[in-house]
Design a protein around this nucleic acid. Structure first.
Lengths: 218, 218
DNA sequence: CGGTTTCTTGATTGGGATCAATAGGAGTGG
DNA sequence: CCACTCCTATTGATCCCAATCAAGAAACCG
């Protein structure tokens, strides 16, 4: 995936502490970011100040593409743990000769991937029940960790219950209750942010069978 | 917005009758489409065959970009009225010399715009109540018609109640009830698919203020 | 430690889904 | 034109899932 060009441009790095903001809604768009390590959330804020988390992002993912449309960042990005990102100057990309082919293609893929991701989220928010959403969320995390070489059965949540709830369009008490119910079903075990998945299949069935509604996340 | 190159490539047109499918999930991705006239919906289908409408699209909008990521269309597009689209062969775009600069830029804008659109939808589905969703939907249509030179106060819905409900993550009865309540409030007037907006401001307040929650007592 | 935040659990409410029945077009054929 | 059917939309009654309200418990942190 185009590591040659990216490496050349991505010479600047930035470290962020937990809670720090990488970019903010309304700021000018100058960089694309590739997450080297750590964990982020991206959020939208509406006029009344209500926050909506639009995504969680981990190492290898690109962030910032929301700024391309208007040259202004449409959402904000916050580090949920100490993190490191590579900065890719966007203007240089547009001007670079070598960018014309392979990178353009890569960028388009990234954008389109983002669209797919968002549309899956719309499906989740539009059609799934609370327990299906939480199950889909756990499966999404499991899948993400697996893809990065970590255990798919055991991991630490980087986000709070409130952030999970917000992301899934639920309330914090509902998320907590559902996690407890999954635990009493023997699907999972939770100790605060530490999650162990005992029965991945049961979770998948919740996600796709329970109460005649479904669809996975990403 | 790049009319020169687009015009050159977009020499083929296609007419669709109401209900016809422009492209379908799983089909190969060969064209981008620009809506010349008419009205479309794009949908996702999950494994159980249930549909989620991911967007409505009218003249001037581009469709098909969901296929770029995988070269397979991620969603399906259906005409909600007799329509006409221009076909832009995607491969030719990628190969065209002139495409390297301006069009790449244009395409990126389109993709990023799509992301913004989807994220707004996530906000709607994640944080808004039923009446706010319906209000936001009417305002969106009003705005779209205004932008195309039509009245922002009076228009015909191209989609059924069921399609509105699906799009907004609601049930058809709820949409119907809320439209009725808007009518009895004097905000709007509905006669089947014919909509007249009498009080745009009140709708905007519905959209941004949650009326039912912030009332502890009367 | 004590103060603060986050998480869990219980009790109750309420918004929207569901179930059910009716009304209103739109289209067809007589 | 009306009579008929089909389909969509409206309206009413009831139910249920998740929100809200409330109170502890556990973790976090100076």
């Amino acid at each position: 995936m185009e590591h040659g060009l990216l490496e050349k441009l991505a010479q600047t790095k930035r470290r962020l502490r937990i809670g720090e903001c990488l970019y903010r809604t309304g700021e000018g768009f100058f960089f694309l970011y590739i997450i080297r390590s750590g964990f982020f959330k991206t959020t939208l804020i509406d006029k009344e100040g209500r926050e909506q988390i639009t995504g969680f992002h981990m190492s290898g993912e690109m962030m910032g593409i929301d700024g391309i449309a208007t040259d202004i960042h449409a959402c904000s990005a916050f580090a949920l743990e100490n993190s490191e990102v590579c900065l890719i100057p966007y203007q240089q990309l547009e001007n670079t000769d070598q960018s014309s082919e392979a990178f353009q293609h890569f960028l388009r893929k990234a954008l389109s991937h983002e669209i797919t991701r968002d549309e899956n989220m719309m499906m989740l928010l539009g059609t799934m029940r609370a327990n299906e959403r939480v199950a889909a969320f756990l499966l999404y995390l499991s899948q993400s960790y697996l893809a990065r070489g970590f255990s798919r059965y055991e991991f630490y949540l980087r986000m709070s219950r409130a952030e999970i709830a917000n992301y899934l369009g639920l309330k914090i008490e509902t998320v907590s209750r559902i996690l407890s119910s999954f635990q009493s079903m023997g699907c999972i075990e939770t100790q605060q942010k530490h999650i162990v998945i005992h029965d991945l299949e049961k979770l998948k069935h919740l996600d796709s069978k329970n109460m005649t509604r479904s669809h996975p996340l990403s």
